[in-house]
Design a protein around this nucleic acid. Structure first.
Length: 665
RNA sequence: GCGCCCGUAGCUCAGCUGGAUAGAGCACCUGCCUUCUAAGCAGGGGGUCGCAGGUUCGAAUCCUGCCGGGCGUACCA
């Protein structure tokens, strides 16, 4: 609503400047003045005009203010500072528009589907905090896209034939000498068991070099897909995937499709992509040198595009190293498989998977898994063929992501390459203090580092479910202390909401390029800039409404807009929206802008920060004005309408971050 | 070596398509619960925005160089 208003004002300004000065402004930027008294929008274009006209910017601005006809929604214009044109909006009109129930946006643009790929955890051990960051970023981004009407498909790629799964299989088969039946009978949490086993396999390899050869053999047996080893691998990866879905489901993260690497292999997606790459001359066979016998791609000559957000001048310094796509033994690398997958996602491969249902969430949503065989009951859903693709993968994989995009370009798919975005983010490390909490001994050198890298291979990390459990425990204790009379079930439900809110906000408040040095004290905090702060703000407002509505039905949600439309209320509005109140309203109106920017820059942190500011403003208001006992009904109605608007935006925004509002706190 | 990222308050971070007095949270100090939930609010101290140049009316923000740190640069994923 604010956005379209600004657009209309801009258009009128451009038109006016063209008519009056014969100059076409290429664009008009609208800034926000530093203080409310200075206005709501600041237009700096007079500085630009000053250069063209060779006159002082202030003078031009004054001239325009004098002569400009009325603009829609604008109360007045003023000259400000060295030559800004500042704009004051009609506050009462604006207020009434914000109070209207949100008009449902038309069911999305026809621009095709957006695919968001995230989580992608190797299915060989439990998820850890690094995976949580990935999943929360991806899930939140998907929510943001859906909120602006995009059709979104969320995929979680399962690398069920990789070395990491092979390592755990080696652990079961050769280190522990277990049969599949014994593995199935293992008690306790399977993902936790594998977490430890995986770490033990690393030392198993180190203890004797011949052990390492077991990995290659196992890997081959898994790829072939038959026999005892493949059965174990299948059991491990399927079971772990179920664990991951359960973990992520605890924090409100769900998927639409689980594409498996084994299916890409078995359905020969790669051989098809290989043909395409060869035909296009995108890769070539090396007959000599150190890459003899390999198929390689020249990276660099098509100038791989940079990832989202950060712009680079793409060096372009001569030729870069070649990247091996097919090894001399004929097997394909990860990049090759990823090119095939990426082609499929963009609808460029001309092949498709088979599908079968994998899991149904408690809300009825069903997640599908790819399959290599046709299967009676699966009416093939419409997966893939994305118009845009976002790959949520940490920044360490930038190089590989660039190669994949370079592959698309080498095939001539420039349009699709432009719409294929690496949503990159920095890793989550462990602060030295956190390592101490975990009982990990550190060297003198490590203690001085700001963080240590999480390593699944070494078993060094904080497991996702352990962290969630601790959050639950702490929030349940807090709720218990404040509301001892609550039934256990209710306490748990509230604790869950708070734990999830705290975790998701914690992972979202950092910008993507910031490395999170994980620290329990910070992650478990419920005060200050945290999810629970947002929740608490809404809970207290809700509490006001509960009491006010019980006393006087004029002020129930539905009747507030009508109440404020009465002539007396309208007159009250015209006079009473002082700067204090207005800055709150104006802040609330900026949610849509924040969402748009977050999508454009792949940076949900901005929305998180914004909501914190909004909550702060609301808390400030809460303390300054007593609402329930306000004697003047007009003023009371105004206050209630105001907090309705603020709470509405706050809640809407929290929804986008996957943070719910508990009944009480 | 080359590529990418980071360096802002004691700590953790925002701000970076140049713009008006550089902001939060935590920690520390001082106040506020017979009044709509104190997971809150008000106030206080704390800054050569890594360093040096350049562009500009104007630089934390753009350019160049340097210093310090991280990641990547595999016939691993």
């Amino acid at each position: 609503m604010l956005e379209s208003l600004i657009d209309r004002i801009k258009a009128r300004l451009i038109e006016y400047v063209r008519e009056r000065y014969g100059y076409s402004l290429p664009q008009v930027v609208a800034e926000q003045p530093p203080r409310v008294e200075l206005g709501d929008l600041a237009f700096p274009f007079c500085f630009e005009l000053a250069k063209k006209l060779k006159r002082a910017p202030r003078q031009i601005a004054a001239e325009i203010v004098e002569d400009l006809p009325d603009l829609p929604g604008v109360a007045k214009m003023e000259v400000a500072g060295p030559g800004y044109l500042n704009c004051f909006l009609k506050r009462d009109d604006f207020f009434r528009k914000l109070l209207q129930p949100p008009t449902h946006r038309p069911s999305g643009p026809d621009s095709g589907k957006v695919i968001v790929e995230h989580t992608n955890i190797n299915p060989n051990k439990s998820a850890h905090i690094g995976h949580l960051r990935n999943a929360v970023l991806g899930d939140t981004f998907a929510r943001l896209l859906r909120s602006v009407g995009e059709r979104v498909e969320v995929q979680n790629y399962i690398d069920d034939t990789g070395v990491q799964v092979a390592d755990v299989v080696v652990g079961f088969k050769y280190l522990e000498k277990r049969t599949l039946k014994e593995i199935k009978a293992l008690p306790g949490r399977f993902d936790y068991y594998c977490w430890d086993l995986y770490a033990r396999v690393s030392s198993f390899y180190e203890s004797a070099p011949e052990n390492r050869e077991l990995r290659g053999r196992t890997l081959r047996e898994i790829e072939e897909g038959e026999g005892d080893t493949a059965d174990i691998a299948r059991y491990v990866s399927r079971t772990i995937v179920r664990c991951h879905l359960a973990t992520m489901s605890r924090i409100g993260v769900a998927y639409d499709l689980l594409p498996k690497e084994s299916d890409i292999l078995h359905l020969n997606f790669w051989s098809h992509a290989f043909q395409l790459l060869k035909q296009a001359g995108a890769i070539h066979y090396e007959t000599e040198g150190r890459h003899e016998g390999c198929w390689v791609m020249r990276a660099g000559d098509s100038g791989p595009r940079d990832q989202a957000g950060s712009s680079s001048s793409s060096g372009g310094s001569g030729h870069e190293e070649d990247k091996i796509i097919v090894r001399s033994n004929g097997t394909v690398t990860y990049v090759g498989k990823d090119i095939a997958y990426q082609l499929w996602k963009l609808g460029l491969l001309g092949m498709d998977f088979f599908y079968r249902p994998f899991h149904t969430y408690s809300d009825g949503h069903r997640v599908m898994m790819t399959d290599s065989f046709d299967n009676q009951d699966s009416s093939n859903p419409d997966f893939g063929r994305g118009e845009r693709v976002y790959n949520v993968i940490d920044s360490r994989q930038s190089y590989l992501q660039n190669i994949v995009v370079a592959g698309l370009r080498a095939l001539g798919f420039h349009h699709q390459a432009d719409r294929s975005t690496h949503f990159s983010y920095e890793m989550v490390g462990l602060s030295p203090a956190c390592c101490q909490d975990l009982g990990i001994r550190l060297s003198e050198e490590d203690r001085r580092r700001p963080y240590l890298e999480v390593s699944g291979r070494k078993g060094l990390g904080v497991k996702a479910d352990d962290l969630i459990d601790r959050l639950l425990e702490k929030s349940a204790a807090e709720v218990q202390a404040r509301h001892p009379q609550l039934a256990a079930g209710e306490t748990q439900a509230i604790a869950r909401s708070i734990a999830v809110g705290a975790l998701r906000y914690f992972l979202l408040k950092y910008t993507r390029n910031s490395i999170i040095a994980f620290d329990f004290r910070e992650a478990l905090s419920f005060e200050g800039e945290t999810g629970p702060y947002l929740q608490y703000t809404v809970v207290r407002i809700n509490s006001i409404f509960r009491k006010v509505e019980a006393l006087d039905s004029r002020f129930s949600h539905q009747s507030l807009p009508e109440f404020m439309d009465q002539p007396e209320a309208a007159a009250f509005l015209r006079q009473s929206i002082s700067n204090d109140f207005w800055s709150l309203l104006y802040l609330a109106a900026q949610l849509e802008t924040q969402v748009r920017v977050a999508i454009q820059t792949c940076e949900p942190a901005g929305v998180a920060k914004y909501l914190f500011n909004l909550a702060q403003a609301l808390n400030h208001f809460y303390h300054r004005h007593r609402i329930k006992d306000e004697p003047d009904p007009l003023r009371k109605g105004f206050y209630l309408a105001l907090i309705t608007i603020l709470r509405g935006r706050l809640q809407e925004g929290m929804d986008l971050l996957g943070i719910s509002v508990p009944d009480r706190m």
